[in-house]
Amino acid sequence: MSVLDIKNLTVRFATADGEVAAVSDVSLSVGKGECLGIVGESGSGKSQTFLAVLGLLAPNGRATGEVMFGNTNLLAADEKTLNGLRGDKLTMVFQDPMTSLTPHMRVGRQLTEVLIRHRNVNAAAARDQAIAMLRRVQIPEAERRFDMYPFELSGGLRQRVMIAMAMLCGPKLIIADEPTTALDVTVQAQILDLIRRAKDELNTAVILITHDLGVVAGLADRVGVMYAGRLVELGDVRQIFNAPRHPYTKGLLACTPRLDDTTVGTMPTIPGQPPNLQRLPTGCAYHPRCPAVMELCRVERPPLLATPTGSLNACFLENAS
């Protein structure tokens, strides 16, 4: 059984210029111990999809559809139910560790408050558990760091604290939103390793939101590619990386530098800009940038359909062949 099951999720924001759909009709699921990578450019709706799952959209955002977490439809749940799940069974690691911890609170208290809230333990027990978790995410001198303020820690250490916080209660699902973007490369690898261990040791489902295809290749079992608020391809990570079907996925992969590539010259890029969500092109949102565009693509939007290999793909080229 899947841990999280998203059906037809649409997220709309009311803005001064009218309503904007940041996420349109996204359906996906993630199973126990599985890691699902979500890739896409900035503004493709990948973060908003999962902020909607946690009920943390900005006040002008509305989510429709169904998000089943166990037996709970998170979109229909009241604040009290959501608060019971958030931080306990359903946790999130945010992108920017420098600003994601409360600056005026000691790191330890920010950890223990999660345990005290969800596990109903006393302060001493919470402290022991929190320090044990800090050790587990390989923070040196965990006891000393416990009493420090966030500004006294480096970015890498702060992200470890964030991960420790997300793992404290033994969650069923961790959503990691670009957990390594703000960190330098050596620290990135360590953080990813922590997430991998959380997945393997706790059998936790992980959703990894990123624009770094390398990160997805190293960690994810399945990958979903988002463009302009829609899933355009979803399937096994190896299959999609070896034989991408959607022209956008192909484009993304072509733009990724490879160590074994000996050609000299300019890095390839996808021409054009991601579309303005307020003025989406007709038909397939990718058609103005697509090298294989057909007449049909300009008029009609390709549905997300199953391919012979079992993945999902939203492209007429595929469906026609």
Binding site: E79, T102, R117
Partner: peptide, 22 residues
């Protein structure tokens, strides 16, 4: 609007506590 307020909400703290404590 700060990121750390979002973190505090993601912990499942009641909103009142998020405001008062964080």
């Amino acid at each position: 609007r700060a990121n750390y307020v979002r973190t505090a909400r993601a912990k499942g703290l009641p909103f009142r506590l998020v405001v008062l404590r964080h």
